[in-house]
Deep mutational scan, measured.
Amino acid sequence: MEQGTVKWFNAEKGSGFIERENGDDVFVHFSAIQGDGFKSLDEGQAVTFDVEEGQRGPQAANVQKA
């Protein structure tokens, strides 16, 4: 798993970007967020995640709040 920080997340659209510790920013969709309840992330929040190849390039998967 990688570690990173939420660069921004739009709760209305359900997507945003995570700033990786090593590498380019990666797209995140709300469906990749693990946990119960409303799936959203806050700017500056620390997260851990896997990276998968999506239709438009790398994207975060199995996102967990650190």
Rank of each mutant, 00 (worst) to 15 (best):
Q55D: 12
K7F: 01
A66G: 10
D25A: 08
D50P: 02
G23E: 06
D24P: 15
A61L: 10
F9L: 04
A60Q: 00
E43A: 15
A32N: 09
K65P: 11
F38L: 08
G14P: 00
F38D: 08
G44L: 02
A32D: 10
K39E: 05
A66H: 11
Q55T: 13
G4V: 00
A32G: 08
Q55N: 11
G16I: 02
D50F: 14
M1I: 11
K7T: 04
P58G: 04
G23N: 06
M1S: 14
D25N: 10
A66T: 12
F9S: 03
G14C: 07
L41T: 03
W8I: 05
S40C: 15
P58M: 11
N22D: 10
F30L: 07
K65A: 11
S31E: 06
K39W: 06
F30N: 05
V51S: 04
F30Q: 07
E12H: 12
R20D: 05
N22L: 09
L41G: 04
Q3Y: 14
I18F: 00
E2Q: 14
N62A: 04
V47D: 03
S31F: 05
V47I: 05
D24A: 14
I33H: 00
G14D: 03
G35H: 07
D42R: 15
K13W: 11
G44A: 05
Q3S: 13
F49Y: 05
F49R: 02
R56D: 09
G44F: 05
G23Y: 05
E21M: 12
N10I: 04
S40N: 06
V63Q: 01
E2K: 09
A66S: 12
G35A: 09
V28H: 03
T48L: 13
D50M: 13
Q59N: 05
W8T: 04
W8V: 04
H29C: 08
A61N: 08
D25M: 15
E2I: 13
D24R: 13
V51K: 04
E52N: 08
H29L: 05
S40R: 08
E21I: 11
F38V: 07
G16K: 00
D42M: 15
R56E: 08
E43N: 13
G35W: 09
F38A: 07
V28R: 00
N22V: 09
N10M: 01
K39T: 07
A11P: 13
T5H: 12
E43H: 14
E43T: 14
E12Q: 13
D24H: 11
E21H: 11
D25G: 07
Q3A: 12
F49Q: 02
V6E: 06
D42W: 14
R56G: 10
E12Y: 12
F17W: 11
Q64S: 10
A11W: 10
Q34I: 14
E43R: 15
R20T: 08
E53R: 08
T5M: 09
A11D: 08
S31L: 07
V63S: 03
S15D: 05
K39Y: 04
F30A: 08
A66R: 12
Q55H: 13
D36Q: 11
D50L: 12
Q64D: 05
W8Y: 09
K65T: 10
G54K: 07
N10T: 04
E43P: 15
V26I: 13
V63W: 00
G23S: 05
G35F: 08
I33L: 07
G57N: 05
V28T: 02
F9G: 05
K65F: 10
N10R: 00
A60C: 03
S40H: 10
G16P: 01
N10G: 06
A32L: 00
N22C: 13
F38M: 07
V28K: 01
G35I: 09
V26G: 01
I33G: 04
N62V: 02
S40W: 14
G23Q: 07
Q55E: 13
R56F: 15
A46I: 13
D36Y: 10
Q55I: 14
F49G: 02
R56L: 11
Q34H: 10
G57S: 05
A60S: 03
K65C: 09
F17P: 01
A46P: 11
G4E: 01
L41A: 02
E21A: 13
Q59R: 11
V6S: 01
V28Q: 02
Q3V: 13
I18G: 01
G16H: 00
A61W: 00
E21F: 10
M1Q: 15
G35V: 10
A11N: 11
A32Q: 08
W8F: 08
E2F: 15
V47W: 00
N10D: 13
E43K: 15
D36M: 11
V6H: 03
D24S: 14
T5A: 03
E12C: 15
F38Q: 06
A66W: 09
G4K: 00
F30W: 14
D24T: 14
V28W: 03
Q34M: 13
E2P: 05
G35D: 08
K7H: 08
H29M: 03
S31T: 12
F30Y: 11
A61F: 10
T48V: 11
I18R: 00
V51Q: 05
N62D: 03
I33D: 04
A11Q: 13
S40V: 09
Q59W: 09
F9V: 05
D42F: 15
F27A: 03
I18Q: 01
A60L: 01
G4Q: 01
K7I: 07
V26K: 00
V47M: 02
A46Y: 13
A32C: 05
Q45M: 11
A32Y: 03
N62H: 08
R20Y: 07
A60W: 02
G44K: 05
N10K: 02
F9Q: 05
S40F: 12
K39A: 06
D42A: 14
N10H: 05
K65N: 07
H29V: 00
Q45W: 10
G16R: 00
R20V: 08
S40I: 09
T5K: 14
E52L: 13
E52R: 11
F17L: 07
I18L: 08
G57L: 05
K7E: 05
G44S: 03
G44D: 03
K65V: 13
F9P: 06
I18V: 04
Q45R: 04
N62P: 01
A66L: 15
F30K: 07
N62T: 04
G4Y: 00
G37C: 09
P58I: 09
V26Y: 02
G23C: 05
E52I: 15
V28Y: 04
K7M: 00
E19C: 15
I33C: 06
M1G: 12
S40L: 07
S31P: 06
V28P: 05
F38W: 15
A61Q: 10
R20S: 07
G14N: 03
Q3N: 12
G54H: 07
G4L: 00
G44H: 07
W8R: 05
G4A: 01
S40P: 04
I18C: 03
V26A: 00
D50C: 14
L41M: 04
G35N: 06
K39L: 10
R20L: 06
V47R: 01
L41I: 05
F27H: 03
V26C: 03
A61I: 14
A61K: 14
F38I: 08
M1T: 13
